[in-house]
């Protein structure tokens, strides 16, 4: 934002909503069914969200799994995985405070961990998450579910379950807003252009 050309006066912001509340809800329901299909049932599934919004999405997915499969205990199979200490860009950004990591009481050894995040972009967060996970235990398998995949991967990482594939340019920004933190469910894309004046 230090760039003078991007100061608020001579910048045009184009914003559009790409997913609304009902579309987000349908995407999560579909991902929940995909998870069960892929795993042939709810046995050994653990949902680990990446703070902050990934944690909220993991909780929502777990509720849906519980509705479909009454044998699945959402509270006992959901957690939160902070990746701050494992990031490779700590020295390039202002200091981030770590978020809590919570694990299911039974741990993650031998389970199928589904990492849940809101936006998949460079893949660096997921790489950090894989490292953080290996310090906590040894899952049988790790899968990745994201609400939005916006491309531009910098590492050989792909998602197993995607809410929406969103072709973007690197100059655009994708905002995921959820009721719990932002009061509304929506995914917005914003592009900024320097004004012509």
């Amino acid at each position: 934002m230090a760039d003078a050309r991007l100061s608020p006066e001579n910048v045009t912001v184009h914003a559009s909503t790409v997913l609304d509340a009902s579309e987000i809800s349908r995407s999560l329901t579909r991902i929940a069914h995909e998870l069960l299909e892929r795993n042939k049932g709810p046995q050994g599934l653990v949902l680990m969200g990446i703070p902050r919004r990934g944690t909220l999405l993991a909780r929502r997915l777990a509720e849906r799994l519980e509705q479909v499969e009454p044998g699945f205990d959402a509270a006992a199979c959901t957690g939160s995985l902070d990746v701050t200490m494992h990031r490779d860009d700590l020295r390039r950004n202002p200091t981030r405070a770590p978020e809590p990591t919570t694990l299911p009481a039974a741990g993650i050894d031998g389970t199928t961990v589904v990492l849940v995040d809101d936006v998949l972009y460079s893949g660096r967060t997921v790489r950090a998450a894989l490292d953080a996970l290996s310090d906590l235990g040894r899952p049988r398998a790790v899968r990745l579910a994201v609400l939005v995949d916006r491309g531009h991967r910098e590492l050989p990482i792909r998602a197993d379950h995607v809410g929406k594939n969103l072709p973007t340019s690197t100059s655009e920004r994708v905002y995921v807003r959820l009721v719990e933190t932002d009061g509304v469910d929506e995914v917005r894309i914003e592009s900024r252009e320097a004004g012509t004046s």
Partner: peptide, 20 residues
């Protein structure tokens, strides 16, 4: 103090070392 609480939580794990 808040960051210290998160650090304290990591020190209850089996693997206490962080790569930060």
């Amino acid at each position: 103090l808040d960051v210290a609480e998160q650090m304290a939580a990591t020190q209850q794990r089996e693997i206490k070392k962080l790569p930060a």
